[in-house]
Structure formats: structure tokens, C-alpha cells
Design a protein around this nucleic acid. Structure first.
Length: 283
DNA sequence: ATGGGGGCCTGCCGGC
DNA sequence: TGCCGGCAGGCCCCCA
């Protein structure tokens, strides 16, 4: 599922196809995804040159020469397919249109970027670049977990007194922006903290310890994405979906991977979502 | 303010 | 083999 590392991998994959390139034609095949698209989105994209591609949390932001910014969120099932240009040693011809191809950007270079999203939890928006910081989807986001604003002091302050389980707190994009279910499970396993522990009950040392673990978990996943991106460029044009091995996520009933631990991975449901954890290692 | 639950949406998978 | 219920989950919204 696209969490911060997957989104970053998609962003990096889009850079060579989009940055500095002109959108010769934007085609929009439906009124919207999670929310309606803004008025005349296709017209406003067509002819624009893409400046920088940024990422904030799980959002990709494409700054355009028109002083507008295109926001892209992959939701649960959003995919970006690149075709019509050399990727590595392979040329990807344009594939036949697929079900759930919602937005297609044909670049002046001939490359094509197709946004396919079966479940339509994804989103696109287009707004004045100058207003990006106050965009409703971005304004309230917490700090980037790989940025300087996310440090031990911040997290200690942010979690102090919180009655919610640490699992829920780390999923809260206002606390820290970019984690999803998978990487929260992995983080708490590595930190040896049970997911149901109230955030406010954690020791200062435990909270401080979460910061470098979150950074490491994400950085390692981005690194894995980078290598898989090279593979995907040779296999097909789809960005961002790569097999990644997890320590606990989706491993219910399988052995805990901590050396010497004889427990099996358990699963509980918190806020309607599965938490995978080792009942022995995580306290 | 905070915490918890509902709902969106389709594809997939296990069970019958 | 086919159908069907349950599940997956990011994130807004609503409610207590």
C-alpha cells in the first residue's frame, strides 16, 4: 500500500519523465476520484510545463509553469504507469487502455503517464502554487518523519498525555506525516512496544527511541524502492509497487523473527485496522 | 480538543 | 466451478 516510501519511489520514477517537460495533452476520464476534480482540470494542465516534483507526506506535488500545482494522492490502489519512452534499455510502447485509467498525461516528449486507481481512494487537485501551504489536505499535516522538525523533543511533547494507543497515534498524520499501517507495525516491532500501549504511558526513552527507528524503517524502504525502481524500469512502466519483506506485517501465525523468540506473530484490530505484533517481544 | 467508528470503493481470496 | 461474504486500508467526517 502506498505509504511514504512507495510515494517517494513513485515521485523519483516520475522525475525523468515529467520534470522540465510540457504536458501536451491531459485527458480526464471521470469527474473525480475521492473528491471531484477541480473545474477544467484537463484544460488547465494541457500546455503547462512541469517544474519540480515534490513530495509531502503521501502527496506528490507537481509545480507547473502556470503558477499552479498539481496534487496527486495514490490512495490505496493508485498506480502510475509510464509508457512511450526509453526506460533503462527497454522502450515501453503505449499499452491498451485499462479499466480504471482515470487521468492520462501525454507529454510533448511522447511519454505518457497514466493514473490508474481501481478503488478510487486517490485524489488529484490543482490550485495556485502560492496557496499550497494552506491547502486543506496539506495545512494540518504533521512534520515529515525524515525532516529536521521531527525529533525526539517534538514527539515527546506531541505524545505526552495522549490516551490513544501508540499504534493510532503514529497513524495520525497530524502527529507525523507519511506512516501507514505497514510501517507503523514494523516500527513498533523494532521498538519492542506493544501496539495497544497508550501513547501517554510510554517512557520518555521509549518515545525518543521511536524517532530513529521510524527514520530507519522509512529510509530502508525507500532504498528498497530505489532498487526495485530500477528493476521495474526494465520490467514494465509501473512505478512504486515492489515486493518488500516485512518483519511482522501480514505475518499472523508465523514465527517471530527475533532470534531466540519462540512466539508467533499475533494480530489485533485497532480502529478497524489490523495490528501485527509479537506478544513476547513487544511490551 | 480528543478518541473512536463509519464510509468510501473494487479486487481478491477463502469457504461452501 | 461459481458465488458470496469478508477483508484490505488512507483519510475525511461525524459523533460522543
Amino acid at each position: 500500500m502506498p505509504e511514504l516510501p512507495e510515494v517517494e519511489t513513485v515521485r523519483r520514477g516520475l522525475v525523468p519523465v515529467m520534470e522540465g517537460q510540457i504536458i501536451a495533452l491531459a485527458t480526464v476520464n471521470r469527474d473525480g476520484l475521492r473528491w471531484p476534480f477541480p473545474p477544467r482540470m484537463a484544460d488547465r494542465l494541457t500546455g503547462a510545463r512541469v517544474g519540480g516534483l515534490r513530495r509531502q507526506s503521501k502527496y506528490i506535488l507537481a509545480d507547473l509553469s502556470t503558477a499552479e500545482t498539481l496534487l496527486i494522492h495514490l490512495g490505496m490502489s493508485g498506480r502510475m504507469l509510464i509508457s512511450g519512452q526509453m526506460l533503462g534499455d527497454f522502450h515501453h510502447d503505449h499499452p491498451a487502455p485499462q479499466k480504471h485509467d482515470h487521468v492520462v498525461l501525454t507529454m510533448a516528449s511522447g511519454a505518457r503517464i497514466t493514473f490508474n486507481d481501481a478503488r478510487r481512494f486517490g485524489a488529484m487537485d490543482l490550485f495556485a502554487t502560492a496557496t499550497a501551504d494552506s491547502h486543506p489536505l496539506l495545512a494540518a499535516l504533521g512534520p515529515e518523519p525524515l525532516g529536521n522538525a521531527f525529533d525526539e523533543r517534538y514527539l515527546i511533547d506531541r505524545l505526552r498525555g495522549r490516551n490513544t494507543p501508540i499504534k493510532s497515534a503514529l497513524l495520525d498524520q497530524h502527529v507525523v506525516a507519511g506512516l501507514g499501517n505497514i510501517y507503523v507495525c514494523e516500527t513498533l516491532y523494532r521498538a519492542r512496544i506493544a501496539p495497544q500501549t497508550k501513547a501517554g504511558d510510554l517512557t520518555v526513552a521509549q518515545v525518543a527511541g521511536l524517532v530513529p527507528i521510524i527514520r530507519d524503517v522509512l529510509a530502508e524502504a525507500i532504498e528498497a524502492g530505489g532498487s526495485s525502481l530500477r528493476d521495474f524500469r526494465q520490467a514494465d512502466g509501473e512505478l512504486g509497487y515492489f515486493q518488500h519483506s516485512f518483519q511482522v506485517y501480514d505475518r499472523e501465525g508465523q514465527p517471530c523473527l527475533t532470534p531466540g523468540c519462540a512466539a508467533t506473530v499475533g494480530r489485533i484490530v485497532q480502529s478497524g485496522r489490523s495490528s501485527f505484533y509479537c506478544p513476547i517481544c513487544q511490551r
